[in-house]
Amino acid sequence: MNYSPRPPIGLCLEMCPKNERQERERDGCLHYFEIMDEQKASRAYKTQRRVLADPNKTVKEYRRPAAGKELSSPYVLRPPAVLLSTVRYLLFNVWDSVTDGDPYHLSEAYLFVFDRLRAVKQDLTVQRIQGQLGAQVLEDALGFLLCAPYIVRDLPVEVYNEVLHATQVRESFSKLIRFYKENEKNPRESEFQALLLLYDLGNLDVMNRALKLCDGVKNAPKVQLAMAVNRAYLECNWVRLFRLVRRLDCMEACTFYRHLPCSRDKTLKTLVHGYSSKNCHFPLDFLTKIMAVDCIETVSEMCTRRGLFVSLNGQPSVIFFKSLFKDIGPERHGREVLLVENKKGERSWAEVMMRECEEN
């Protein structure tokens, strides 16, 4: 008979255990967002002398199990309610304080929030928290993980590691789906099942699993829209794809954002093969609408870089001639006003990530 010890139950009611806070304060390992406000602009912080931790701002950092640290003591583990409040603090008090600021503080905020969310998930795993309590923590963390790539797209690779970030997204989705299976009533399940479909666009296994969901989740409008986007992608029906993408809300659009350059590149390739003729002038304004691009100038540059002839006389148009086409691959990720920022509106990014003040 196999004996499985009961998982520890977290007793730490602070965002960071006292022992860790004192240890990092002593070793000078506090983050900028964790020190006392009066020290942030002082020479003590800039010269890395001893600085004091603010107990209300210090957040437990992620530590690898192999680092020789005790990870299963109840006194260093935070219960679900504390984990939820920690995620909320990271988004509303840290992330929203800098997202409109300079790139340096944006980099610092991203690295800080990303690391502390890994620690949140670690506490969740060690305690084997399941069901709706675990789902709520992961849902809030995924809000950040799905939206952040759009916001930090221009940060250097040493700050925003796309592969590591994607790994955390996939691990979070994997755990979340297991939590959904353990609890029949999850208020936000349809929302995150739809987000998974958009994140793993074109993945037949994900599509097949979605088809087996209970009717209440499978028939939800968000899931049906995400399924339609997937079908359009698999059928290479790019006009329909972008028509559907326009209907996505802000978080859904951020989730789809990783597929945007590839989808537009495939759209151009399809049009080049379908309308290849020296005498066929394809209107640029129509092409801009088809690919849901913000302005006609951007589409003109995309075509020019691929060797296509763009005429700006009269009605701007492009000639899709196969012999001139250069396959340079997808464009770099950039700013998206139509698909993302207009849908964000006046809400803060934290409100978008947490689905607060959602517009009807």
Rank of each mutant, 00 (worst) to 15 (best):
G101Y: 03
F114T: 02
D102R: 14
L111S: 14
F92W: 13
T86N: 04
H105V: 01
H105P: 02
Y89E: 07
F114M: 11
R88H: 15
S97R: 06
P80R: 04
A81P: 12
P103F: 02
S85Y: 10
D115H: 05
W95A: 04
R118F: 00
L83I: 03
D115V: 06
L117S: 11
H105F: 14
P80I: 04
E108L: 15
F112M: 10
W95R: 06
V94F: 00
A81W: 05
T99L: 15
L91D: 04
V94I: 15
P80K: 13
F114S: 07
N93I: 00
V98C: 12
Y110N: 02
Y110A: 06
L90G: 05
P103M: 00
V98D: 06
A109S: 05
G101D: 11
F114H: 13
S85G: 06
S85L: 09
Y104S: 07
P103H: 06
P79T: 10
P80G: 11
R88D: 15
L117E: 10
V82I: 10
S85H: 12
E108P: 06
V113Q: 03
F92C: 15
V87A: 04
F114E: 13
L117N: 07
V82T: 10
V94W: 08
V98L: 01
D100H: 06
N93F: 13
P79F: 06
F114Y: 13
L83Y: 06
D96G: 08
S85I: 02
V82Y: 00
Y89M: 11
T99I: 09
V94K: 00
R116G: 10
F112W: 02
R88E: 09
L117R: 11
F92Q: 14
A109P: 07
L111H: 06
V113H: 11
W95G: 02
V82A: 02
A81V: 05
P79S: 07
L106M: 11
V98N: 11
T99G: 10
F114N: 14
V94N: 01
S85M: 08
L84A: 12
F92Y: 13
D96W: 10
R116N: 11
T86H: 02
V87G: 08
V82S: 08
D102P: 05
L90P: 03
L91R: 01
S107W: 04
D100V: 01
S85N: 04
N93V: 10
L106G: 00
L83M: 14
D115M: 04
D96A: 01
L117G: 04
D100K: 14
A109R: 02
E108M: 07
L84Q: 15
R116C: 13
L90K: 10
P103D: 07
T86A: 01
Y104E: 12
R118T: 01
D115R: 10
V87H: 05
V113Y: 04
H105E: 05
